[in-house]
Design a protein around this nucleic acid. Structure first.
Lengths: 145, 145
DNA sequence: ATTTTCCTTTACGTAAACGTCAACCTTGAT
DNA sequence: ATCAAGGTTGACGTTTACGTAAAGGAAAAT
């Protein structure tokens, strides 16, 4: 089962560049218990797992998850192997709630997209009118000139 | 064009209840230039337009918009009637960017949903195992008893 | 008449998520 | 040797979006 392969590692600035965040952010996430880099002396060494967690966390942020929420999900996910029935049921409950949140977000997005489209249409109309006026003005000037 | 119909109005607590926010929130939004209630003496009287803005703002929040962003959109939308070409082009630019954001969010949501599903599956598996163990334990006890 | 019930303003407090120093290693390049 | 590039740990500062409490007006119910 254990592949014993030396997996890739990343420096803090590797990850910072890849995900376009500051190193401060990454250290902060560690302080919040979201990342757990190994150490080589003082220097942090990030594993692929850390990298995935960072990715998930940032995506979660875009979807309105707090860092605490993300952490809770990771912790629960990790503890599913232990198999405490109560914990598992609790996690299923949380997952269902998150799914419901996502459904709501989907609706929100669809509505907003429609509104953005009508706003764009209105905007283009207004623009056309402005340009038409400009056009007629030029015509007049040419006739006069 | 002017229907001159007395449109519905709302008190601050009407809106607070309808959208499940505090009155503090609603006053704060006014302070941020998002709402513009009329006044009857000191008391705020909200129009349907205010109501819509509140709704949009809250939806925006769920999608990660800051109050300042929402306000900017409203201000620009209102000013489209004036028809300054530069403004209109700027607004079209903003709208396109928001659309792009929403596309990204759609992708984010879809991925997250998939992950939630696999997490759920894993969770159910773990739960089954726990319950199977429990079951066998009971069987043994019955045989022994 | 007075007690609720809403409403108001003003103002200080707070949690989340970092930004921004400061002050300090260490390590490879010049 | 020294110097620049990257790493580290504090620790205080900042922004956003409100919460919360104080102090009070005005109207409606008892």
């Amino acid at each position: 089962m254990n592949k014993a392969a030396k997996l890739r590692t990343y420096s803090i600035s590797d990850l910072a560049k890849e995900f376009d965040v500051t190193t401060r952010t990454i250290r902060f996430y560690e302080q919040q218990g979201i990342l757990n880099p190994a150490r080589q002396g003082q220097t942090r060494i990030y594993s692929p797992k850390d990298r995935v967690r960072l990715m998930l966390t940032l995506r979660g942020k875009r979807l309105g998850f707090s860092l605490a929420e993300s952490k809770e999900l990771y912790d629960m996910y990790d503890s599913t192997t232990e198999g405490d029935e109560k914990q598992l049921l609790y996690m299923l409950d949380i997952l269902a709630k998150k799914q419901a949140d996502m459904q709501q977000q989907l609706r929100d997005i669809q509505r907003l997209q429609e509104e953005l489209n009508t706003a764009e249409a209105r905007c283009r109309e207004a623009l056309d009118k402005v340009r038409e006026r400009e056009h007629r003005k030029l015509e007049k000037q040419q006739k006069a000139g």
